[in-house]
Design a protein around this nucleic acid. Structure first.
Lengths: 224, 224
DNA sequence: AGGATGCTTCGATGAGGAACGAACTATGCG
DNA sequence: CGCATAGTTCGTTCCTCATCGAAGCATCCT
């Protein structure tokens, strides 16, 4: 028997779906707060906090406290490399994607991804914004176009924020295999969708359900 | 949220101690049978079989049937690379080696490693056999020396076997970080130790407990 | 054929741990 | 100071899954 490094301990940390989602989210490289990670993983805040403690104790995460915010990040490139390796095996082995169920269909259409919209609707929206040159996209880099300012101001969204986070970011949408819009702009758009009651979040799910009228309004505003 | 490859599924496969031990054992590159892996993992045969099914279903293993033997091996270099990556993180993070407990102390002294002896006693034995040139060692390669035949015959061990397995093999002992003797010779020596009742296996453990008299006999025979 | 060995399946048991709500602590804002 | 927001801790519930013994297949040996 092997008395080596405790590989089962590390692997089992990654082996929980909630923790795996958190780690995947952190693979983006930017540190996130507990509540952001809770959303990402689809669990409650207490549950997320418990998972984060375990990941910290396991040495997979680092913690940077800034005031009342606590930013969790991957502990280092070695950890990131491990996640990559596991993801690679999962992808190679995983063309057994069984994902039916009524709620999952809704999730593919539209869902919350951290603080912005994901799914087919979100991918279509980004496509359209780029096609109209409201946004300028160069691979994964997304910039505001010249008309962005007025375009979004007309909808009631101020693109000038002084937050740490970038205004625009591409976020890979795994259900569609294409990118959708993240960043503060993505978040603002989701806020508007919910504030206008064009759609509602389904309880205990990340699915976002558009009402018939809301869907029209959304398409008129963003897919025109 | 991420709808990507199911990394939690793969990681949780590795996250069970029994399965992790099996995978570590297979990192040697040679395929092993279910019963060998059961010993390696320290579980019963049914339990091992169940784990192997899961690893197969997860795509981490390949299976080669040869008659009534079924040899399990790692599915490929990508899987091996993943195990390496996890092991690396575990080793980097793991200088929290807390391993007290009465039974664990006994395990460090002597324990069963698959079918041969491991632990401090086993490492000392290999050292001594090499020093006396009964065995000739070149790094991880171990050959029988000229006097090996008569030396082991005197103890009642026939070193001439026609098994597939090599007679001598070096096996890295993680508790001591040095090698001990595996292979059919290592197995024969463990058999003799137990047959002569120099030591007994502790129930539900891989620990091997020498009796005071047995210890003397062992040391006279192999450490003289 | 009959027995031995290698391995899997079945069924029952038990323990670990994931989940959440409620309550508690800490930081920031007015 | 008091209220709101961000996080953690506690206690409970529940379910998955690891484990083993017994029994069932499959293969080899004689």
């Amino acid at each position: 028997m092997r008395e080596g490094p405790d590989i089962a301990r590390i692997a089992s940390l990654v082996g929980d779906p909630a923790r795996a989602n958190m780690l995947s989210a952190l693979m983006g490289g930017t540190a996130l707060t507990a509540s952001e990670l809770a959303l990402e993983a689809g669990v409650s805040l207490p549950t997320a906090s418990s998972h984060l403690s375990k990941l910290m104790e396991g040495g997979l995460l680092t913690l940077a406290s800034q005031g009342r915010h606590r930013y969790y990040g991957l502990a280092g490139p070695q950890v990131a490399g491990m996640i990559e390796a596991i993801t690679g095996v999962a992808a190679a082995v995983g063309p057994q994607r069984v994902r039916p169920g009524p709620r999952d269909a809704a999730m593919r259409v539209a869902r919350v991804c951290y603080d912005h919209l994901a799914g087919e609707q979100a991918v279509a929206m980004l496509d359209r914004l780029v096609a109209r040159q409201v946004l300028l996209r160069d691979d994964e880099e997304i910039q505001l176009g010249p008309s962005a300012d007025s375009h979004f101001a007309a909808i009631g969204i101020d693109v000038h924020t002084k937050a740490r986070r970038p205004v625009c970011r591409a976020c890979l949408d795994w259900s569609v295999r294409r990118s959708h819009l993240a960043g503060t702009l993505g978040a603002a758009i989701l806020d508007k969708i919910l504030a206008e009651k064009w759609a509602r979040r389904e309880k205990d799910s990340r699915a976002v359900i558009f009402s018939p009228i809301g869907k029209q309004a959304f398409e008129k505003t963003f897919l025109a």
